[in-house]
């Protein structure tokens, strides 16, 4: 095993990312967005990389969290920590429902179902515009305040989100290291065998879905407070697509890969979208390239780079486990 894949290394890398982002980025908003998507993408990776479930519906939970924050904060004066907690609970509940229906089918049917459900929830948000604001979204979502002062400066909100991010990332690392996480890996490798040993595999998948949904909705709520709006676009097909793309680009074999995936996508989008509005054309080509030449994603590159630098003297056949 590559030492970078160890749980403490993953957590250390996440903390490092939090500290490094402010040094390189001028925009606190962009840096905050990267951290929010990093946790959301890691939650998608819990399903894709650790359970073998390719969910095209993560935007549902992101949007649910966004609307939970939007509604609670603009209509009622509910304290932000309570809002974040209820967004997570709501996300978990929705994910349990969507998961319960989607897990009934396997393989590609599962993927198609999650995509269809993302459309379902989009049309719910679009149709009931009295609650969600429809196309306009919910405007005027306030930032949280700590000790009586609102975190209106971008970098002070960054700190708030950074604390949340590290906590969520640590939880996800702990989940993947637990017996529960190991069982998910067993299900990914061979569901039939895991079921034959006696694991209730559907229940495990459902729990993974609930955790993923909770984290994603939590991120969605943070995002609404970042941009000050709860927009319809957060529950659209595109958000689901975006989260999945970031997950695969980052590499599904490591949670920190997801942080890389989110950072890579958002930095690329930030650099290109102002220069060339049709930059998604390039993104499409990037996706094809990743599938052909970079199947382990950016994390695969990191692992290869690490091996090159620190193990140059070793023959490539040497098993890494000796370390």
């Amino acid at each position: 095993m590559n030492p970078l894949d160890k749980p403490y290394a993953q957590l250390a890398l996440a903390v490092l990312a939090v500290l490094v982002l402010p040094l390189f980025l001028k925009s606190g908003i962009l840096a905050t967005e990267i951290l929010i998507f990093a946790m959301v993408v890691a939650a998608c990776n819990l399903l894709l990389g650790y359970t073998g479930l390719l969910s095209f519906g993560q935007g549902i939970f992101f949007g649910i969290g966004t609307y939970a924050a939007g509604i609670c904060l603009t209509r009622w004066q509910i304290p932000v920590p309570v809002v974040l907690a209820s967004a997570a609970v709501l996300g978990a509940a929705t994910a349990t429902l969507v998961g319960w229906l989607s897990i009934r089918r396997q393989g590609v049917y599962f993927v198609m179902l999650t995509l269809a459900f993302s459309q379902l929830f989009y049309f719910v948000a679009y149709t009931f515009s009295g609650v969600t604001g429809g196309d306009n979204g919910l405007l005027g979502v306030p930032r949280p305040s700590v000790g009586g002062t609102a975190l209106n400066a971008p970098w002070s909100y960054y700190t708030y989100v950074a604390v949340c991010f590290v906590a969520v990332f640590a939880i996800l690392v702990m989940v993947t290291q637990s017996t529960f996480g190991r069982t998910l890996l067993a299900i990914r490798e061979n569901e039939g065998r895991a079921a034959a040993i006696g694991f209730p595999t559907k229940l495990f998948k459902l729990e993974a879905f609930a955790i993923s949904g909770a984290v994603t909705a939590f991120g969605g709520a943070l995002h609404a407070m970042l941009i000050g709006v709860a927009p319809l676009s957060n529950i659209e097909y595109h958000t689901s697509e975006l989260i999945l793309i970031m997950t695969i680009i980052g590499g599904s074999s490591s949670l920190f890969g997801s942080v890389l995936g989110a950072g890579f996508y958002l930095l690329l989008a930030d650099a290109l979208s102002t220069v060339w509005p049709r930059w998604l054309l390039l993104l499409g080509l990037v996706l094809v390239t990743v599938a052909l030449f970079l199947q382990r994603g950016l994390w695969g590159l990191v692992e290869r780079g690490y091996d090159l630098v620190f193990r140059r003297e070793r023959a490539p056949e040497t098993p890494a486990e000796e370390h």
């Binding site: 390719l54 393989g107 793309i245 499409g284 990037v286 996706l287």
Partner: peptide
């Protein structure tokens, strides 16, 4: 399948743009 989906999602983006 993951990569089938990745490539065809990429192609769909290219066509749309």
């Amino acid at each position: 399948h993951t990569f089938h989906i990745l490539v065809t999602v990429g192609l769909a983006l290219v066509v749309q743009e």
